[in-house]
Amino acid sequence: MRVFDFDGTIYDGESLFDLYLFSARYDLKVFRHLAPVLRYAVKYKLGRATLEQMEHGVGKVARGYLTDLSTSKRLDELRMRPFDDVVKAGLGGDVLAADASVLAADDLTGGLRSLVNAFWDRNMRKIKPWYEPHPDDVILTASFDVTVGEACRRLGVKRLIASTIDPDTLEVTYLNFNTNKPKRLRQVLGEDAVIDEFYTDSVFDQPMIDMARKGFMVKGDVVTRVK
């Protein structure tokens, strides 16, 4: 089994930040959330925020952002695009998530679902060319399942462990960050799960590298074995 971090590893950039910028095309009021998102993204990459700080800060920002999207009239225009073939905001029924209840995220808002689809229409090209999906791959990411799930669907990857959002309250129910990653992976895949290879762009994923038989560090399109 191969396990991959997503942002900066197989995706060229930070998908959540890119989604914020993309959504601003449809409603400029989301710009109010860009500075906090960037701040927390930098803290995450530099390892300068505790898990508790990230849970509180990211939860607050995500709730405000999603609330804006859920009331956006401009995003309603995207509903005119065909979306019947996208199940649960890109999450197929056999995609594993940190919280099974999040699989009802298609009810979050039609505008959000359409936004996610339009975003990946444009940004699948940012999946790095070196990555070739395998049937048993697992994507392990701090980004949210309601967004990364669509990329997984298009890649044919059926196992995703990600941060989750309650579609009713817009609260972050689980932040798959730092030490939460190996904890949640064991909960979802089992204590005896064997990770043959783990790929990341961050040294702060060392706990996952320690769990794997082989560890790889990704910088751009260069993949270097570190274990």
Rank of each mutant, 00 (worst) to 15 (best):
L160V: 05
G156E: 00
I139G: 02
K158A: 09
A162F: 05
V148R: 03
A142F: 11
V146D: 06
Y131M: 03
I165K: 07
A151M: 07
P167H: 14
L160D: 04
L140H: 04
H134D: 11
W130D: 02
K126E: 06
R153T: 14
H134S: 10
V157A: 02
P133S: 14
P167E: 12
P167M: 11
F144E: 08
V138A: 05
E132G: 02
Y131A: 01
A162P: 04
R153N: 13
K158E: 12
Y131R: 00
L155D: 08
D145H: 06
D136R: 08
H134K: 15
I165F: 07
G156H: 08
D166T: 12
V157G: 00
A142L: 07
D137L: 03
E150S: 09
T164V: 11
I165G: 06
T164H: 02
E132W: 04
V138E: 02
E150P: 05
T164A: 06
E132V: 14
D136P: 00
P129N: 10
G156W: 04
L170K: 15
G156I: 08
I165S: 09
L160S: 01
F144P: 03
D136A: 12
T164N: 01
P129C: 07
V148M: 03
F144Y: 15
K128Y: 00
T164I: 02
S163F: 10
S163M: 10
R159M: 07
K126N: 12
R153D: 13
V138M: 00
V146R: 06
D168K: 15
T169R: 13
K158I: 07
P133G: 12
L170I: 10
E150D: 09
K126C: 07
P167N: 14
D168V: 14
K158M: 06
I127V: 15
G149C: 01
T147M: 06
R153F: 10
D166A: 12
A151D: 05
P167Q: 14
D166S: 11
A151H: 05
V146G: 02
A142N: 05
K158W: 07
V157E: 10
V157K: 06
K128W: 01
T141H: 02
D136C: 01
T169S: 15
